[in-house]
Simulated scan of single mutants.
Amino acid sequence: MANTSSRTLRLLSLLQTHRYWPGSELADRLGVSVRTLRRDVDRLRELGYPVEAQRGVDGGYQLAAGAALPPLVVDDEEAVALAVGLQAAAQGGVAGIAESSVRALAKIVQVMPPKLRRRVETLRAVTEPVSFGGGPAVDPAALTVVAQACRDAERLEFGYTAADGARTQRLAEPHRLVALGRRWYLVAYDLHRHDWRSFRLDRLTEPHRTGARFRPRELPAEDAATFVRAGMRNIPAAYTVDVLVHAPADRVRGHIGRWAEITPADGEDGSQRCVMRMTVDSLDWPLFALGGVGADFEVRNPPELAELAREWGERFTRAAG
Rank of each mutant, 00 (worst) to 15 (best):
M1N: 15
A2N: 15
A2I: 15
N3Q: 13
R7S: 07
L9Y: 09
L15G: 05
Q16P: 07
P22A: 03
E25S: 08
R29Y: 12
G31P: 07
G31W: 11
V32C: 15
S33G: 14
R35H: 12
T36Q: 10
L37C: 04
L37M: 01
D40G: 10
D42T: 07
D42R: 09
L44Y: 04
E46S: 13
G48I: 09
E52P: 05
A53D: 01
V57I: 13
D58N: 09
Y61H: 02
Q62I: 11
A64F: 08
G66Q: 14
A68K: 07
A68M: 11
L69D: 14
P70I: 01
P71A: 06
A79E: 09
A79F: 05
A79L: 13
A83Y: 03
A83I: 04
V84D: 04
L86Q: 02
Q91L: 14
G92S: 09
V94E: 05
A95H: 07
A95P: 02
G96S: 14
I97Q: 04
A98T: 01
A98H: 02
E99M: 05
E99P: 00
K107G: 00
I108F: 02
P113E: 01
L116G: 00
R117M: 10
R117F: 02
R118Y: 13
R119G: 07
T122C: 03
T122K: 06
T127F: 08
G135N: 08
P136V: 14
P136K: 10
A137W: 10
D139P: 00
D139M: 11
A142G: 14
L143H: 07
V146F: 02
Q148T: 04
C150D: 00
C150W: 01
R151Q: 03
A153H: 11
E154L: 00
Y160M: 03
A162F: 12
G165E: 02
R167A: 00
T168W: 13
Q169W: 04
L171T: 13
P174S: 02
R176N: 12
L177Y: 01
V178W: 07
L180W: 07
L180S: 05
G181S: 09
G181E: 12
G181I: 04
W184K: 01
W184N: 00
V187A: 01
V187I: 12
V187M: 07
L191D: 06
R193Q: 12
R193M: 04
D195V: 06
R200K: 11
D202Q: 12
D202K: 09
D202L: 15
T205R: 14
E206V: 08
E206P: 01
P207T: 06
R209N: 09
V228C: 12
R229D: 10
M232T: 14
R233I: 10
T240A: 04
T240M: 08
V241K: 07
V241Y: 01
D242N: 14
V245W: 03
H246D: 15
A247N: 02
D250C: 05
V252M: 05
H255F: 14
G257D: 02
W259H: 11
I262H: 01
A265E: 02
G270N: 07
Q272Y: 08
R273L: 08
R277M: 15
M278T: 14
D281W: 11
P286R: 06
L287M: 08
L287N: 03
D296V: 11
E298L: 10
P302I: 00
E304M: 13
E307L: 15
E307P: 00
A309G: 08
E311W: 06
W312T: 09
W312M: 14
G313A: 14
F316I: 15
F316H: 15
A320C: 09
